[in-house]
């Protein structure tokens, strides 16, 4: 019996290995396509740069008091093939992106097939070592599957996507474990964010109290106060700021208050937690296009984020515990 089972196990594993060889090839093609896409995009960027230079040159010629019509026409004529090249390059890129998407779908299908086969093997009686091997393989391919699934990598940064996860609806235990881990890391991230917000709120409250007391003291003395209001200034938003998370998903306490953009983005991410009409309360004093905020406005923003994070955290906890 045992010999029979072992033989089945070896046969299935062999077929999986053969299938995996096919997947290896698919993965290589997928990687190659991505490299190709990167190179084509770089080529497009350089073409756009040349085109911009030409446009600047033409503008400069036009601005001259004595316009050299011949030169302007020459420059415009020279720009035509570049424009054509840009157009064809954009077509190449679009086609390549479509190919990559198809390849992703094939890979997704192949990974799902392997996982299903492994599940079927798992149902049979096996030695603990064999079971462990199968478990490891399932985990290995599930991870690969999640990597080619759209948006999965940014789970911890996208509350809406995370909260769409319904652990009890996932039948595959390995997949469920992975999603559960994602939920745990999201919760950890929320807790860390809350700590930072609480720290900042305390600091801002203290600053606000000090500023108000100072103004009142001056008002007491001379019927007037002349302290220039202290504003918290935000930088223009840069997407790479999202990368300030450490490997463990935590985020260092900001060294200064010029972090408003980050909190605005966080706020927008958390917007869905409450119905839209309730947002008007914080949106009216805090126009997202406003660059400098008063300390009071910054206080309001932090309080709102704190509340949203708390709500988000409680939903995450509920999701995790409902699975236990």
């Amino acid at each position: 019996m045992n010999i029979k089972l072992s033989l089945v196990f070896i046969l299935i594993l062999n077929s999986i290995t053969l299938n995996a060889q096919n997947i290896d090839q698919l993965e290589q093609e997928y990687m190659y396509m991505q490299t190709e896409l990167y190179q084509e995009k770089q080529l497009l960027d350089s073409l756009l740069e040349v085109m911009n230079e030409r446009a600047t040159q033409i503008d400069r010629e036009k601005e001259k008091r004595v316009t050299n019509q011949g030169k302007t026409v020459d420059l415009m004529a020279q720009s035509v093939p570049i424009a054509n090249q840009i157009e064809s390059q954009q077509i190449i890129i679009a086609a390549l992106e479509k190919k990559i998407e198809t390849k992703q779908q094939i890979l997704l299908y192949e990974y799902s097939e392997i996982i299903d086969s492994l599940r079927r093997v798992e149902e049979k009686k096996m030695s603990p070592e064999e079971e462990e091997t199968i478990e490891k393989l399932i985990f290995y391919y599930t991870e690969k599957k999640l990597r080619v699934s759209p948006q999965i990598q940014s789970l911890s940064y996208d509350p809406e996507k995370i909260l769409q996860i319904n652990l009890s609806a996932i039948e595959d235990s390995s997949e469920r474990n992975i999603y559960e881990q994602y939920l745990h890391s999201a919760l950890k991230e929320v807790d860390n964010q809350l700590q930072i917000i609480q720290h900042l709120s305390l600091e801002i409250n203290e600053m606000s109290r000090l500023q108000n007391k100072a103004n009142r003291f001056l008002d007491e003395l001379e019927m007037d106060s002349r302290i220039v209001p202290y504003a918290v200034v935000k930088e223009e938003y840069r997407p790479e700021k999202e990368e300030v998370f450490n490997n463990n998903g935590t985020r260092g306490i900001p060294s200064n208050l010029v972090e408003i953009d980050y909190y605005m983005v966080l706020m927008r991410q958390l917007e869905w937690v409450q119905p839209r009409e309730k947002l008007s309360k914080w949106q009216s004093p805090l126009d997202s296009t406003q660059i400098n905020l008063s300390i009071n406005e910054y206080q309001i923003l932090l309080q709102e984020i704190k509340q949203r994070l708390q709500e988000y955290g409680s939903i995450l906890k509920k999701k995790i515990t409902s699975n236990e």
Partner: peptide, 17 residues
């Protein structure tokens, strides 16, 4: 004009103008 101020022990504050 010089103003210096500090809040201490949560409820106490001292200011100099």
């Amino acid at each position: 004009r010089l103003m210096i101020g500090k809040i201490f022990y949560t409820r106490w504050s001292a200011f100099l103008v």
